[in-house]
Design a protein around this nucleic acid. Structure first.
Lengths: 232, 232, 232, 232
DNA sequence: CATGAATGAGCCTTCATTCAT
DNA sequence: CATGAATGAAGGCTCATTCAT
């Protein structure tokens, strides 16, 4: 892992720029009244704790300190309340993938798959920390609500994936990534390792005494060695 | 990764022995009446499709072609029905970890972390294929039913983990695994990669045209390179 | 309460004869198989404990150590099981009242309302002791099952009551009972005191350390003084 | 039972005062919405008619003209609905017994067990008339719901009974009540006669053409003669 | 806007009863 | 005769949703 100091500086700049970019793609909640905010927070807590189906609007109302009717003044149905929590999250998760500039960093002059990973993992970790309970809900409910996936499916399959595939293949051609794996396998292993880290870090064992930076670096190092090119 | 032919033969023998061992740890369902089997199957289907809470016993009864009361003759509550599907699965998942012989393979003369991984991944993949729908349910419901985790928690944390940790550290000392990672990180990366593969393969994209053996080998190869020692 | 010795002897003979008469009116249970008997006993216990409606045939079957179906082989319905316990009891309770000889004792030459009371109270107390749990059930269920009362209503109102009324009026005319009360009031007070005693003795406070004979005598003494004639 | 006119006047005054006292101990139902009142009335009717266990909430709802859910908005469970009817009644029945002033009347200068009885019987008769259906339910259900008795048991056994016993014994010592009966027997006979009267009057034969005042007087007269002292 | 009483469909569960073995 | 699995109607209760205030 020897890299000249100068490049390092540039890399770091690039990483910062990408993280900025990702952060910018997330706009904050639209304005809500105080009551509405309390409803949403109560809903997040209770959906996360017992699951959407097992949560009752009356319990949410009680925890939010509002009347049951008030919930339905803001959200036509219980499902709409769920979606108001979870859809913007899906949107934000997908958002960076459709940004014009997102993959530009990968087209920069040096081999920087690593920088890219670092930026993405850090940003998603911040993201997870910030939206943890809602992410849990998303994770739980996405299998049961195709409406949450549907709008993004084509976008990802036809828009994002091919672009990633092409980028990976360029790295492989350049010798930065091993060429004996199909690009899909490289993507799978990358995503699995990164998401796996985030899942273990934030969902499975959030209370383990993580040294976050070190663990992030290890994950990247592991990935880079596992995928190091060329190997014929 | 050049290995002499002779060792290879022995490795394969060892792998087959371990797979055998794992398979043996799974005993089959106890005998049920025809009706009971139909109830369980219907329940698996519907729990998997809409989640435990959102599934109704009347729907299960209809799909099973029995009267609703019949369900409750066999299972005192809806929850007991869920557990009858899911607890044996948890048991079977944990079973190999407590087998005396399970880690013995790792104490054999040559560096065989790889063989161990291959045996385990293959076996778990077979397992996933066989119990797919029930595994989906398990995955969905385990966060909401501490009763499912509780009996195994101490066993894993105090019994299994230390043993794995020790084994990994021995590999590190022998130079078979990189020594610059804490053993916990090695374990995390291994498990994440393996489980991540199985999750993508069976749950996330079961319909992708997988070349299972090739992909298993790639996952192992990726892992072994990512974790190759020493690097002290 | 001074009475000549000779009369006393005769009174006692009379009382014994009446008690004999009353006892004879009670024939024992018809023959049952062992299982049937166990069912009936279990039913008595459970009906008494939780009431007919709240008792379940499955609980009865369990307690009786038979299959649920077995109950319905002997009794077409749950209600029939109840009635098999309770109707013969009503019949036995009413039986003495329709005996030709029952009131004959009252037509004997001396004032012997008292002897009559003593015989009846003693006999009913024995009866209560013997059939206590079933009596509890009867008491609880009779308001909800007109079928239990119906067959005896006319008999009592038209057959028994007038006869008692006539007898009481004869005692009043003879000066043995006070004449300033209508006969119905005398009957009410008599029955109330006697039944009240039996109720308190056996149902309300069965565990109080009763001196049964003394208390019986007190009840009779109280009644005789309260109703002593003439006073008009 | 000749008593001077003057004393009579005072006695009547005293009786009226006691009746007033008893009536005061009964506070009225707390305010309810119209719907709630209809639910309670329907419940009283149906519980009385078929017993608590055999009554169904859906039937109650129909008779009350409300949705079934409405019942459970006001009463968490069916049992709570029963208790809302029956517990205040038990409380009111016991209330006079714990009034400081209740037994004071018995300590007045003349022999007035009789006045006391008259006041109590009249008051309880009014009470019975007013709460008849609920009393029927109470009578039916009290054996099956220890929770109804429990709170009052110690109060009565340790607080009320000894006081009554002492009073009765004073009357016996003074020659107003017969001294050849244990005080417990005097109490039992008194209570049995009074309660027996009320039971026959209101529950068993409510449709008999009662001359209530006359019958009350007869009961008292009967009691006073049956218990007249001293008989050493 | 907010409320919360009211709704009634639907849930899990119990139960008396039937019937093939 | 006895069994006990199976039934399905009915029970108590919960819940998302509506609407008059």
């Amino acid at each position: 892992m020897d890299r000249p100091e100068k490049d390092d500086a540039e890399r770091r700049a690039q990483e910062r720029w990408l993280e900025e970019l990702l952060r910018a793609a997330e706009d904050d909640r639209p304005k809500m009244t105080d009551k509405q905010a309390r409803i949403v927070n109560a809903a997040i807590e209770i959906f996360a704790e017992k699951g959407y189906s097992a949560a009752s609007t009356s319990e949410i109302a009680t925890k939010a300190g509002v009347a049951e009717g008030t919930i339905f003044r803001h959200y036509k149905t219980k499902k709409e309340l769920l979606f108001s929590i979870v859809s913007p999250l899906v949107a934000k998760l997908v958002a960076p993938l459709v940004l014009k500039d997102f993959f530009k960093v990968l087209e920069a002059p040096y081999p920087n798959y690593e920088s890219f990973l670092r930026a993405v993992i850090r940003n998603r970790s911040d993201f997870a920390r910030k939206h943890l309970p809602a992410l849990r809900i998303l994770l739980q409910e996405i299998p049961f609500h195709p409406e949450l996936r549907e709008p993004y499916k084509d976008l990802v399959v036809e828009g994002v994936l091919p672009r990633i595939r092409r980028t990976v293949e360029r790295f492989q051609a350049e010798g930065a990534l091993r060429a004996d794996f199909p690009s899909d396998a490289v993507i799978r292993l990358t995503v699995t390792s990164a998401v796996g880290f985030l899942f273990v870090r934030h969902i499975l064992l959030p209370d383990y005494p993580w040294d976050e930076d070190a663990e992030t670096e290890r994950t990247i190092d592991f990935l880079m060695h596992g995928l190091a090119g060329p190997r014929e």
